[in-house]
Design a binder for these strands. Structure first.
Lengths: 240, 240
DNA sequence: CAGTGGTCTAGACCACGCC
DNA sequence: GCGTGGTCTAGACCACTGG
């Protein structure tokens, strides 16, 4: 029986049951500590978790207030194509299409904060499931931030897996959208005549330097992204 | 100067700089407390935040180990069409298309955990930006879990906004995918001849009872979902 | 079984911000 | 001003687990 978790769950129950409606100010730490027979510190820890979960807000002198859940935040795990394919019981296949050092196009250069003429490496490759095309990966890597990329030919190791090992990053942003495929994509992915592609765009930074911009093109007919609730608690039981 | 935050940031720096590489076991709480001139409790709090951020894992006797960032988790804010439209400076328009009480189809019934014959309310409506169709909302609401839905005609209030006020939920799941539009959708959304729709599927529960299943159909040509980093720290500075 | 993290107490001082 | 949360200390005991 972990006290701070029992307290957190008790308070959570009062909130989701509606006993403590959104907008209401709940009892102060001292009162709760008395009610639960513990010290302020333990109550404070429970309340800190509720804050992290976005269920309450706290203000000095103003007390702790229950928030209405607009409930718009969700956590999405960016799928790694290799793991998806293997988890589905299919044979994973990897094929490097092209690799070249070149001037990145303007949008990429902007993302990297590079001056015109600065070098970057472009890699394109194809991931297969049981031989069937599953994803085209089109990626620019900032050669200034990752010099080692020049010595890599990506013939057997996919850019994603190489980067994860080679360069820790500190920040990532993703975008999901659907697009009309180019003719090249249509051929590579063996798309139906009218089929679109589901694009996952992934950008990573190390501090302020852009590392990579990747476009992951998936056949829209057989691709989806799912979310789960913000970690809040449930996962990661010991963390607060 | 908040000590636990200073310590957390110092440790974070050693991790992202590579001084403490993934896999490495970092000094114990007692050593860190001595180094930073504080008590174990303060160091523990800093480390708890690093755990929550997914940067380290801790085990009794095993110590605190730096994790490699596969970096696959991202937070996505589910867009609310009205806010998106108004934020873009357009006039928001709402039109209820249909509302009826009916037997939900099998997949919906399954999501609600309802027996055949149990009632639910179906609502369809259209959201516009400057008169132009922006999103079709197709939603089932569990009448058993939300009896008040029977008295609502949704003529002026959208189901989403009504539900947020009326029924707190405890759990939500979303799915993003792209689909061929039906003819009805093509007409309602004024889609280009070959255009697909970007579907956001949203399901919410209260405890174990399903509340609603919504399909939000967006013209794929002008819709995207973006993510940000897991809250970790930065947002919500006081929370841990 | 020893050493690590996990938890909790009792008490203190501080800082902010409604009233 | 004064009550609230925010932080920190000093010390204690426990629980797990790797060597």
């Amino acid at each position: 029986m972990i006290k701070h978790r029992a307290i957190r769950d008790a308070l959570l129950g009062r909130i989701v049951s509606g006993e403590w409606a959104p907008g209401r100010v709940i009892p102060g730490e001292v009162d709760l500590a008395r009610e639960f027979g513990c010290t302020r510190a333990t109550v404070a820890r429970a309340l800190r978790e509720l804050v992290a979960a976005g269920l309450v807000e706290r203000r000095r002198r103003g007390g702790t207030r229950v928030l209405g859940r607009s409930g718009r935040d969700a956590v999405v795990t960016i799928p790694i194509v290799r793991e998806e394919i293997e988890a589905a019981g299919h044979a994973y296949g990897y094929e490097r299409l092209t690799v070249r050092e070149a001037d990145p196009p303007e949008p990429i250069r902007q993302a990297f904060g590079l001056r015109p003429g600065a070098a970057a490496v472009h890699v394109a490759c194809l991931h297969r499931a049981d031989g069937r095309p599953a994803q085209v990966e089109d990626r620019w890597i900032n050669a200034a931030a990752v010099p080692a990329v020049r010595t890599q030919d990506f013939r057997t190791v996919s850019p994603n897996e190489w980067l994860v090992r080679a360069v820790p990053y500190t920040r990532a942003r993703h975008e999901f959208r659907a697009e009309r495929p180019t003719d090249r994509l249509r051929g590579l992915l063996d798309l139906a005549p009218d089929e679109w592609v589901f694009v996952v765009e992934r950008r990573t930074w190390r501090e302020d330097a852009g590392i990579t911009v990747a476009h992951l093109y998936n056949p829209a007919d057989r691709f989806r992204i799912t979310t789960r609730d913000p970690v809040a608690f449930g996962v990661d039981p010991g963390a607060g």
